[in-house]
Amino acid sequence: MIEWEPDVPRWRQVADVIRARISDGTYPPRTRVPSVVQLATEFGIAQATAQKVHQGLREEGLIYTEPGLGSFVSPSGA
């Protein structure tokens, strides 16, 4: 669990954690990132919030999603 900042949306805070994990190599390029359900469980957030995390990271180009397979770190990484 993380200590929530009251003035920052939770999805942004979780996205920051995942972004940091990509940057530090915890999730190397082309490896799977936690699913929506896994994020919801790990961070104690709603699945809709976790979906927004994935959406934001996709929009940044940090991850891509393969339907039926999951979401992965983009080949270029961070």
Rank of each mutant, 00 (worst) to 15 (best):
V17R: 00
P29I: 00
I2V: 14
V17M: 05
G77D: 06
G56T: 03
Q51S: 15
T65V: 13
S71T: 08
P34M: 00
G25A: 03
R12Q: 13
S74Y: 11
I2W: 11
E5M: 14
E5F: 14
D16Y: 07
L69Y: 12
F72C: 01
G77L: 05
A50N: 09
L39A: 06
P67K: 09
E5Q: 13
Y64T: 01
R58S: 14
A40Y: 09
S23C: 11
R19P: 03
Q13G: 00
G61R: 02
A50M: 11
L39G: 05
Q13W: 06
G44M: 07
T49I: 15
E60L: 13
S23T: 10
S76Q: 14
A46C: 07
I18P: 02
Y27C: 03
A46T: 10
E66F: 10
V8C: 07
E3L: 14
L39K: 05
F72V: 00
G70I: 00
S76Y: 14
R32G: 02
I45T: 02
Q38F: 05
V8Q: 07
G56R: 10
A20G: 07
T26D: 06
Q38W: 03
V14C: 01
R30Q: 09
S23V: 12
T26I: 05
R32N: 03
A46G: 13
P75C: 04
R30K: 08
H54N: 12
T65C: 14
F72Y: 04
A40L: 07
D7I: 12
V8W: 09
F43A: 01
Y64D: 02
P29C: 01
G70A: 00
P67E: 02
V33H: 01
L39M: 10
V73C: 08
T31H: 05
L39R: 03
L39P: 06
I18W: 07
P28E: 02
G56Y: 09
E60R: 11
D16N: 05
V37G: 12
D7N: 14
E59N: 13
R32F: 04
L57R: 06
Q55H: 15
D7G: 07
F72L: 03
I2S: 11
L39Q: 10
G44I: 04
P67W: 09
E60D: 08
E66C: 06
K52R: 15
L39D: 07
I22S: 07
I63Q: 03
I18A: 02
V8T: 08
V37C: 09
W11P: 09
G25S: 04
V73M: 12
E42M: 14
G25N: 05
P6S: 10
W4G: 04
R30P: 09
R21H: 12
S74R: 15
A40F: 09
V53E: 08
G56M: 09
A15M: 01
